[in-house]
Design a protein around this nucleic acid. Structure first.
Lengths: 116, 116
DNA sequence: CCGTCTATGTGCTTTGAGCGTATATTCTCA
DNA sequence: TGAGAATATACGCTCAAAGCACATAGACGG
């Protein structure tokens, strides 16, 4: 594998970053990810099921997440569990740094404080 | 105008937010915006001219930015200047808040500190 | 057992971005 | 002063991703 650099994946789409964030908590299945994202965004931006599952397929292809073969016993058979790969963690962190930089700029340019 | 809510514009595309950030500094013309964005992102993500000008057209339609009729004297005639509208400021701030929330989540889930 | 929630997925369409190209003007400096 | 580089805006084409509707089916609660 020739010299992986997380930056080539940036910027992540808002949806992709939401999903990686959901998995930062630990392995999870699709529907839970959907709920986690929609909880956190507080109905501001509803993530649709179709969008989620297709995004998961893409993240798998890119090797940012992987599916677990082992699953909890007595669990709903339909569920498919995912976790972040090392690569996925690296990319999510890089994106977080990028966003932190943007916020720093926003702050420096007085976008965040006071007025209108 | 029926009860404007900034949240309906969220999430902004990374490109759109970059442009609004560039204009948070004050009015500016297209090519300068291009340079500002590409400086700040440090070649991680090159914003192409074609992408920029089309994005500007979109932001104008959405009334997030507006073109200035007055321009500096002795200035390059080709330049077209833009500034943020009140609406644009509100949307940019809302997006900044959204991103701050995501970063807080990233922090809470230990994505940012230490380890692999 | 009946409807709702859980769970994953596909089809269709639109939006936005990447990248190349066109066009013209202004600026630099040999 | 003339050539070439940088400035400045914009369009064409294509692809990736998202929105939204819909399909399918098992699990769960009353």
């Amino acid at each position: 594998m020739d010299r992986f650099r997380a930056e080539t994946f940036l910027p992540l789409t808002p949806v992709a970053f939401d999903i990686l964030l959901a998995l930062a908590d630990g392995e999870q299945h699709g529907y839970r990810i959907l709920q986690d994202v929609n909880m956190r965004s507080g109905s501001i931006t509803a993530l649709h099921a179709g969008t989620l599952y297709r995004a998961l397929a893409r993240l798998l292809e890119q090797d940012l997440i992987q599916e677990l073969s082992e699953r909890p016993a007595e669990d709903d058979e339909r569920r498919r569990y995912y976790r972040l790969t090392d690569r996925g963690i690296a990319v999510a962190r890089a994106e977080a740094r990028r966003l932190a930089g943007q916020l720093a700029t926003a702050e420096a340019r007085n976008l965040l404080k006071a007025h209108a």
